[in-house]
Computed example of a mutant assay.
Amino acid sequence: MPVVWEWDVGERFCVLDGVQNVDDEYQLSKGISRADGFPADASFAMSAKHRKYVALADNISNLNRALVVSRKLKEAIEARRPRDVEFLRVSIFDHKQKLASNDYFIINPFNVIDCIDKDKSKYRWNNIDPEKMSSCTRLVLKPEAIHPELLLFRPRHLEYYVLIHPDLAAALEDEGFTGLRFTPIDEFES
């Protein structure tokens, strides 16, 4: 069963504001391909609310809930050849607007799978967007809807979350990447 890709900010890693210089940035959390015409000056700035934290993790929390990852983590995933996933280069600026790194990427899985068992899950629909769940306290997936070799995807109705194959999650944890946390489906709450 897949697990939910999340962030482990810890006590030292930076947190990012929203992506800058990207039109329709909301698409980055909807499972929409953005590779064509993605701007070369796409960037994130470290959050002023977290001024003490400046260290760059391999997986960085941000307001867009995008998967912002280091080149090393990107290459580890890319080497496994996930389907329907794109890697979009972004820069990161520190609290003083100085370039901290231009070697980070948004991992954008654009495969949206209708895999939530709505009869067994416990959730509330969003009042504004009737196709989105605003909260989910019990997530149950339909295993038959998920191809067993699918490495990264987004669940329909909760597209701003990315689900990852448990073998890939375990391999990434074993490789010691920082800022990663994977939550089992039965422990997930949004």
Rank of each mutant, 00 (worst) to 15 (best):
D114L: 10
D117K: 05
Y104Q: 03
I92P: 02
Y53P: 02
L67C: 10
N108H: 04
P39H: 13
I60Q: 01
V112W: 04
I116K: 03
K72P: 02
L99I: 09
M46L: 08
R80L: 15
P39K: 11
N108C: 00
S33P: 01
G31W: 00
A35C: 05
G31F: 01
K122M: 07
R81D: 13
A45E: 08
P109C: 04
K96W: 05
C115W: 00
Y104R: 02
Y123Q: 04
I113A: 04
K98E: 08
F44I: 08
Y123R: 03
D36K: 14
Y53V: 07
A55H: 12
R89F: 11
K98S: 12
K74S: 13
V68Y: 12
V54H: 05
A35L: 14
K30C: 00
F87T: 08
D103N: 14
S47N: 14
M46K: 03
K96G: 10
K52V: 05
I107W: 02
I106T: 02
A48P: 09
D94G: 08
I92G: 02
R34T: 01
P109H: 04
V112K: 02
S101Q: 05
L88W: 00
F105W: 12
E78C: 06
D103S: 07
S101Y: 06
F38W: 13
L56F: 05
L67M: 14
K74M: 15
K49M: 13
H50F: 09
D94V: 01
K118C: 11
A55V: 06
P109V: 07
V112F: 03
A45W: 12
N62Q: 09
A40F: 07
I113S: 04
A76D: 10
R89D: 12
K118G: 08
I116H: 01
I113F: 01
V85Y: 03
W125V: 07
K74N: 11
A79H: 14
Y53F: 07
A66N: 08
L88S: 02
V85D: 00
V69N: 03
F105G: 00
V112A: 01
P82Q: 03
D119H: 14
V54S: 10
Q27N: 10
K30M: 00
D58F: 01
D103K: 05
A40N: 04
A57S: 09
S61Q: 12
D94T: 04
N64V: 02
S33Y: 02
R124V: 05
S43A: 15
F110S: 01
P82D: 00
S70T: 11
L63T: 09
R34F: 02
N111C: 08
P39D: 10
V69F: 10
K120S: 13
K30V: 00
V90L: 09
I92F: 03
D103Q: 08
V68T: 06
K96C: 12
